[in-house]
């Protein structure tokens, strides 16, 4: 290969690799001492999908997985519901800072997690179909109501094998677990 081809080739490789880089999906407040958090409450998640039970399902999986990680104590959903009802939060999926501080005081939480289910279910492209999930979570510190961690994750979707051979992709539950595990990994990284 002639030597004069090397610089343009290298430039092409660098450009191609740069194109593969995804957007940053995690925010961590560098001033926050995450070690001081012991108890968290997971608020009901916002549901932007057509599947009515998607938010509850994801919240259930997230609660179990976060508790099973052993790093944080998650307040039982029934107790969170009592706190929401006692404080009188009209829209629990997007509480105001004031509501957040109040509810955290009632249920004795160090932090509150809110989130959104943006995509849940089957996606189609041409004749191919596969299950997909897209989630985002925020961790809010209850004393000031500041967002100290935020992450989003997307799993599933139509891959090359789905396009070539069909098959419908992975089951929804498996994708949900993978997405939740990914979000938890981003919280502890």
């Amino acid at each position: 290969m002639p030597k004069r081809w090397i610089p343009p080739l290298m430039t092409l490789v660098v450009l191609a690799l740069a194109g593969c880089a995804g957007p940053a999906e995690v925010f961590r407040d560098p001033n926050m001492d995450f070690g001081a958090l012991h108890t968290v409450a997971i608020m009901p998640l916002a549901n932007l999908t057509r599947e009515s039970s998607a938010a509850e399902r994801v919240r259930d999986v997230f609660t179990t997985k976060l508790l099973a990680s052993g790093a944080l104590y998650v307040i039982p959903p029934g107790e969170v519901a009592r706190g929401i009802s006692r404080v009188g939060i009209s829209n629990p999926v997007a509480p105001s800072t004031e509501e957040l501080t109040k509810v955290a005081g009632v249920i004795k939480a160090d932090a509150v997690i809110t989130g959104t289910v943006k995509e849940y279910g089957e996606v189609r492209s041409g004749s191919s179909a596969a299950n997909s999930i897209s989630l985002s979570f925020q961790l809010l510190e209850t004393q000031t109501g500041r967002v100290v961690w935020s992450a989003s994750t997307t799993m599933g979707g139509i891959g090359i094998t789905d396009r070539l051979f069909g098959g419908g992709g992975e089951p929804m539950n498996d994708i949900t677990e993978r997405a939740v595990n990914d979000a938890i990994k981003k919280l502890f990284q």
């Binding site: 039970s53 509850e56 039982p76 959903p77 029934g78 107790e79 519901a81 009592r82």
Partner: peptide, 29 residues
Amino acid sequence: IMEDGVSLADAELLFGMLSTDLILSGEVN
């Protein structure tokens, strides 16, 4: 009535009423 699972206030009541050490509850998806 426990609409979203058992709260600690409900649990408190049940612990006393039924003289129980543990309460198991859950959800079926």
